[in-house]
Design a protein around this nucleic acid. Structure first.
Lengths: 229, 229
DNA sequence: ATCTTTTGTCGTCAGTTGACGACTTATTTT
DNA sequence: AAAATAAGTCGTCAACTGACGACAAAAGAT
């Protein structure tokens, strides 16, 4: 009983070992835990327990506390990575490239956005933590999205030669019309067990078409209907 | 110490008594608990504990178990009332009243819908239970909303003389364009601590305008672009 | 007034859950 | 090979949480 069942004695298998428990260097194990934890908490919420999480990681519960002083520290880091991580810096630049028609830019952007941000993992974690009042970092997210909305609205208005209302909040709301539908589509997809028969890319395409085509009508009579530009 | 502090002896005060603990008839107490529980669970999720709930009700924890055999029974009834309760039967009829322009019908409908269904209580409870996989009664809700979507899409198509795609799922997706934005607006309002400076009614108004104005462009090229009707 | 029923609380029990001290085992250093 | 360091587990503790038996007291019935 002292020897390994197979008796194999791998001397230089630095990384992973077959039998028994795997032993990883600190940084790798930490990474592995954070990744599993993101998956786990996005499924069960930030109130998910440490024991099931450890089981999902294939380690003992105690080991979690060798990497994080307490559960809050773990969830905080998971949140920061999963929620704030996937936002790309190139989006603003791509959206303002007036060489291309705005509908095309928007379709491209939202397809990318849906693929990288509006994933099951991101969405569920975001909703879980939004519901729990202790918002982890909503301001940062909010400011990023606000900037995107402003840009989108301005780009469409520029292409269609539409005069936007002065009120900033109102301009944001115009942008939310499109951003909201796309976000809500993701919610349907990842929360309600929707049929999923229409491909995401198609849905985004006609959300954009609808938005662009209805933009002028939407703005007129919205707030500052001062035609002039 | 035997007598009440004031010494008052109200003989016929059937309902409520001032000092000490209030004593309610069974049905009333039950109602009161269910109402408080709806508020409580919508704030803290269905995993909220029975002791804080009892405290919010102003009763002992034990008393909850005089009305419900276990916590699951309580949450189930709260869910049924809060989520399934507020849907109105008149909506379908009102939406199909072709005497009035469809934009007007839609605006009226969504204002009512936002006021009665998309409340903080409803939305949070709905999201909490959607996130927890054990969907309480999603089928019933889904079928109601599906019917609304079909009606809305048909009404707009009829007014604009647009030919709808054959694919039912695709037709639903068209309706989700509007339903999604309005729903997402409610999410922003009740989950993210949004600024709230633009009145809900205004937002709904231009969501509807955008949808109606962009409808034709959205449908064309969506799926079955067979012009003919 | 006395008895009965109904409404309500106290205290407690078993199973969880976050946290951590003490110990074991593998890898690296000397 | 021995010592030192790093990776990992076992077992346990205190606080929490759903559930419930036993008891207290108010309201109604006789």
């Amino acid at each position: 009983m002292k020897a390994k069942s197979t008796g194999l004695k791998i001397t230089k298998a630095k990384k992973f070992r077959v039998g028994g428990r795997t032993r990883l260097p600190r940084a790798e194990r930490r990474e592995m835990i954070l990744n599993q934890a993101a998956e786990f908490f996005s499924e069960y919420g930030l109130t998910g327990q440490t024991r099931p999480l450890a089981a999902a990681c294939g380690i003992s519960q105690r080991l979690l506390y060798r990497f994080f002083p307490n559960k809050a520290a773990l969830t905080a880091e998971v949140y920061a990575r999963t929620i704030l991580g996937p936002f790309k810096g190139t989006w603003l630049a791509d959206l303002t490239d007036r060489e291309r028609p705005v509908a095309e830019r928007l379709t491209d952007f939202y397809r990318d956005y849906a693929e990288t941000v509006l994933t099951r993992r991101w969405l569920r974690l975001f909703l879980y933590s939004s519901l729990a009042e202790g918002d982890m970092a909503p301001n940062y997210i909010a400011s990023i999205i606000t900037r995107l909305l402003e840009t989108i609205v301005e780009e469409v208005a520029a292409e269609q030669d539409v005069c936007l209302p002065e009120d900033v909040a109102l301009r944001h709301e115009l942008g939310w019309t499109l951003h909201g539908t796309v976000s809500h589509m993701a919610i349907r997809k990842h929360l309600y067990h929707a049929s999923q028969s229409v491909p995401t890319d198609d849905i985004i395409a006609f959300h954009v078409r609808s938005f662009v085509a209805g933009f002028k009508a939407m703005v007129e009579g919205a707030g500052n209907p001062r035609p002039g530009s």
